[in-house]
């Protein structure tokens, strides 16, 4: 920022004009950081000081360095400004540390919160989840599509895949052990319910025939099934009226 001063006028006459100028443009400049260059006449240390005071009072500009025609004055102000900004920086740093600590505390509290999930509250997602993609919700999830192998779905409540589940599903993500995972074709790699994990059968040399990959040689079409925790283990059951009637998750109020 160049401040060009008339060389003939008395400095005291210039001061009110300088004040006016900065007052008028204060909002335009905002709180930008600037290097102040004073041109047109030589100014003494005292005069430069007065100008800087005006800028400090009338605007939100942050002057980080001063360049004048007089090198000696320039040096003095450089030092003064550095000292000023060093103090300002220290204040900002203290504030930043304080906010970080508060944030961390908030995050920890959130993680410990066991979010109670109403079994009737569900998010509906339309479309398949492909390998490498994931979908999360705090509520229950109704997915109108497939979950491909290599894809992952996570829900605070239960998961209903109205399609095939070939990937990973994590129900009861916040600790609800009554949550379950249902799919029209339940063929997952892994299922997690709260803190329990179940993995699919290992593949063997003849697995291509038995798996879902070769349609004509598929062992059985089991129809819709659900995985839920019974007696401490994740078990797969037929998803029918009897399941729904006995289901703990859905009888929650």
């Amino acid at each position: 920022m160049v401040l060009r001063l008339d060389s003939e006028m008395y400095f005291d006459e210039l001061l009110p004009l300088i004040t006016e100028k900065f007052e008028a443009s204060a909002s335009f400049f905002g709180n930008a950081k600037v290097v102040l260059s004073i041109e047109g006449r030589e100014v003494s240390e005292e005069e430069t000081s007065k100008i800087l005071n005006i800028i400090r009072e009338k605007t939100r500009l942050r002057v980080v360095a001063v360049i004048t025609e007089d090198k000696a004055v320039e040096k003095i102000f450089d030092e003064k400004l550095h000292a000023a900004s060093a103090v300002e920086d220290k204040e900002l740093e203290k504030k930043a540390v304080k906010y970080e600590a508060e944030n961390k505390k908030l995050l920890e509290e959130l993680q410990e919160l066991k979010v109670p999930v109403n079994g009737r509250d569900a998010e509906i997602h339309i479309g398949s989840i492909r390998s490498g993609q994931s979908f999360e919700t705090a509520k229950s999830l109704v997915l109108l599509g497939d979950v491909k192998a290599g894809a992952e779905v996570t829900a605070g409540g239960s998961i209903f895949v109205l399609g095939s589940l070939h990937g990973n599903a994590n129900a009861g993500a916040y600790g609800d052990r009554s949550a379950f995972v249902m799919a029209l074709e339940l063929n997952p790699l892994q299922i997690r319910i709260a803190d329990s994990l179940a993995i699919s059968e290992d593949k063997g040399p003849s697995s291509l025939k038995g798996s879902g990959l070769i349609r004509s040689k598929k062992k059985n079409d089991f129809g819709p099934e659900a995985a839920e925790i019974t007696d401490g283990h994740i078990l797969i059951k037929k998803y029918d009226r009897s399941f729904l009637e006995n289901c703990k998750f859905l009888s929650q109020k």
Binding site: R130, S131, Q133, G150
Partner: peptide, 16 residues
């Protein structure tokens, strides 16, 4: 083949 098909699924997801 299973491995090729897995990668194809990933690619299709990225294309979409």
């Amino acid at each position: 083949e299973v491995s090729a098909v897995r990668d194809a699924d990933r690619i299709i997801g990225l294309l979409e």
